[in-house]
Design a protein around this nucleic acid. Sequence first.
RNA 1: GCCAACGUAGCUCAGCCGGUAGAGCAGCGGUUUCGUAAACCGCAGGUCAAGGGUUCGAGUCCCUUCGUUGGCUCCA
Length: 625
Amino acid sequence: METIAKDGMTPFELAARDPEMKKQALAARVNGAVAELWHPLAAGDQVELLTFADEEGRRTYRHTASHIMAQAVKAVRPGTKLAIGPAIDNGFYYDFDTEEPFSTADLAAIEKEMSRIVKANEKLERFELPRPDAIRYMEERGEPYKVELIQDLPEEAVISFYKQGDFVDLCAGPHLPSTGRVKAFKLTHVAGAYWRGDEHNKMLQRIYGTAFPTREELDAYIARMEEAKRRDHRKLGRELDLFSLVEEGPGFAFFHPKGMVLRNLLEEYWRKMHKDNGYSEIRTPIMLTKSMWEQSGHWDHYRDNMYTTLIDDVEFCVKPMNCPGGILVYKNKMHSYRDLPLRMAELGLVHRHEMSGALHGLMRVRAFTQDDAHLFMTPEHIKDEIKGVIRMDCEMYDTFGFKYSVELSTMPEDHMGDEADWEKATETLRQALEEVGMPYVINEGDGAFYGPKIDFHLEDCIGRTWQCGTIQLDFQMPERFDMTYVGQDGEKHRPVMVHRTILGSMERFIGILIEQFAGAFPAWLSPVQVKLLTITERGDARAAEIERLLDAAGLRAEKDLRNEKIGFKIREAQMEKVPYMLVIGDKEIESGEVAVRSRKDGDLGVMALDTFIARLKEEVATKAM
RNA sequence: GCCAACGUAGCUCAGCCGGUAGAGCAGCGGUUUCGUAAACCGCAGGUCAAGGGUUCGAGUCCCUUCGUUGGCUCCA
């Protein structure tokens, strides 16, 4: 809703003209800047009213909720010091410095106090103070963290505060006009968090919560979280017998037979795609001498995460990345400009000593297989090669129905090489993205230590994002390893190198796949595609025969000949999320047909076995979802 | 690594104020031969994560270590 204001009005008065908007308006955008509903307007101001549907409206709403929580914490735990409390994607948090950590019981007490504050409908008021007054004010109130924040604000900054009841917080705003406008909230969990995100600083207590305009929306959010728990790949991985993680090997996944079928199918598809795109495949050792890692620069930049060992008095490092292997293969012989671009893929097993607290199912492990590839080329090839990789990424993700977003990461503080090279490399990546029409955002300072990169982030079923694909441009390694090719002029030249993954890691991608499909994989990926269910032992021979025929057709079948009722066998097959069940009783033995049941649609009735096989083969061939 | 919570049978969980461990499912053995999401009976299964301490006595209280979970930090 866009409108032009009259002098002396407020956005709230504008909203009041429309009964719907009066209820929904949370903040306003005035001439491009977000402001409160009570912000005084001048004649001709461009005003857009913001509701919960707008990101800024959502943030304003939840930011006020976080202030209410902080106020409640101050009441429940007097003497608590305030740190920071912003709105985040799905809610808000506030960091506190307390004597005693919070418990779940405390959350209930804080929620109760929050309800009281909401009911009291206290007005939020903004005021500004000059810097020395602001510092003194926060010192008097016993808020050392706020004092530190003020001291770090730039000289010219306006130092604003928000007050509701006896609670005052340093805050840029905007906020809702009063606490009564926060209708539905819930505190979700407590966690430790370092002051200013720095692990050398004190660990504070963070309380997370979320807030919605209606009870129904909050309930829907809670239901979504429950659904996420139901889809958790760690739970499904155990239930479907795909993989396990045990105490004896923290961060090192065990793949079970069914998980291995899935993994091999994924690799098979991956290999086909790479072959079609002009890649060759290599495999390089998981250990190389430490001196090699010093040459590559990994030892300097990455040693804290590397596993090392001693072999015959020589130090070796287990590879945390595959690139040196690819480089050594390249350097094994002379290359002509005619060989380039050279695309060498490797499903490479890497080990990284991740911090114990970072481990998370298959998503974050200490040993994983990257679907890596290294591309060697002349500078003229760069843009087309990058565009080619981007297209492969899109094809792969579309196959599984993933949504994804792209980031371009620039030079980090800890980097090799001079800034001009970085500038040039970054610009090339940008051009490639522009030319394929791929929307992207810049991620400042997040590149690899040897070059800028393009990252693909997949969005999972509950909106979490996972980095999978990455394309990294590298001018450094070719220098360090003195890589060359012979040009048309007969002289030696330096090739350019691109590192890239599409799936990221097989482990993480499988974890994401499990959650994406809630374990109910499309037929082409299902470890077991057909379950043969006999009604009595008279069906055993026919089941064995059908199993042979399905196997001959390249389909994966399993039979359930146990002395159980058909209802029980169906229940188990459904829970195993097998796409098709064939019920084999006396009628089917007699007719030679099969009674088909689909995981999704239930009983499909009787059909000829050939018809069923043709239908399933088609479903597999098209990778139908 | 840091903060917090948790760790009891393969899985999900009970076990009160400290008195020596229990259920369902799964497994195994029987009975039953059955038509689209759980037949019945029985059996077996545990150094209560590991180690130490307090106590006449510890699954329960305290300490240490390991692991898991949620975050922080880091990241494919």
